[in-house]
């Protein structure tokens, strides 16, 4: 039987400092998610044992699971806090634990620095080269079948769930993560993006590239958008092998 409150255990701390756990109890409401619990704490920053404290810092923006901002580790699993519903996490009033992602440096409380993921998008040239934004007529035709492959790949929010779950992604490795491999597949599929496919493959064959993937397949299980990351890795694995074997012929 659900109680009328929600108990949250939140791992807090400063950049580079030690962590501490704080426990909170907030009133339970229908359709409540983790974000609304955190908002409740902002309005009443008092711990479960009645001590005054500071509001918890966390990142959020859209609250619809399309921006990727509010990613954190909830009850041990990495996911977005906005789509984490209290009724599912705590059907009988069990405490809910919130922790920052572990693969990125902590900034404060639940906020981490995910810049490394955006840097990887620069390294892999994750864009389509266009001649300019001026009028050059209609774009290339794309079949419905190709669009149906490309659209799901393009929903990657750079949220970090996949790399949080990946055993090969950490501060001792350069691995750029499954998300950039999957995005490279997307740009290399595009009719004009394909023209720079080689440069992107070269980046994937460089430091931190596809060879650092240990095929643990955790990524695909935690992706909130259901992106076929392991399929992308195997497609790009083949492409990079082809380029490694025959690329010297093409380079001329």
């Amino acid at each position: 039987m659900a109680t009328d409150t929600v108990t949250l255990k939140i791992k807090r701390g400063e950049s580079g400092g030690a962590s501490r756990w704080e426990e909170f109890r907030v009133p339970r409401k229908p359709m409540m998610n983790v974000i609304s619990c955190l908002m409740e704490i902002q309005k009443h920053p008092v711990t479960a044992d009645g001590r005054g404290t500071t509001p918890v810092n966390w990142e959020s923006s859209c609250l619809e699971e399309v921006c990727g901002a509010c990613t954190m580790v909830i009850n041990g699993r990495v996911r977005q806090a906005c789509s984490a519903l209290v009724k599912d996490l705590s059907p009988k009033g069990e405490p809910i634990t919130l922790e920052p992602m572990t693969k990125f440096p902590r900034e404060r409380d639940l906020v981490v620095n995910r810049q490394r993921m955006f840097d990887a998008l620069r390294t892999t040239r994750a864009w389509i080269e266009i001649d300019g934004s001026h009028q050059l007529g209609a774009g290339p035709k794309v079949s419905q079948d190709d669009q149906e492959v490309m659209y799901p790949l393009s929903r990657c929010m750079t949220c970090g769930c996949c790399v949080e779950a990946c055993p090969n992604y950490n501060d001792r490795s350069d691995f750029m993560g499954p998300q950039v491999i999957s995005l490279t597949r997307l740009y290399n599929m595009h009719p004009s993006g394909r023209m720079q496919a080689g440069a992107r493959l070269d980046a994937l064959m460089g430091a931190g590239g596809i060879s650092d993937c240990g095929k643990a397949q955790n990524c695909v299980q935690v992706c909130p958008k259901g992106i076929p990351l392991t399929e992308s890795i195997s497609v790009m694995g083949r492409e990079t092998i082809k380029r490694a074997l025959f690329g010297w012929l093409l380079k001329g």
Binding site: W127, Q135, A138, G139, P140, Q144
Partner: peptide, 22 residues
């Protein structure tokens, strides 16, 4: 129309008709 064509050239995965048009 020019803006949508530009976005298409940038790689936005717009839904398509059977002919491959937007």
């Amino acid at each position: 129309p020019g803006i949508v064509f530009m976005l298409d050239r940038m790689g936005v995965p717009f839904n398509r008709t059977p002919e491959g048009n937007l």
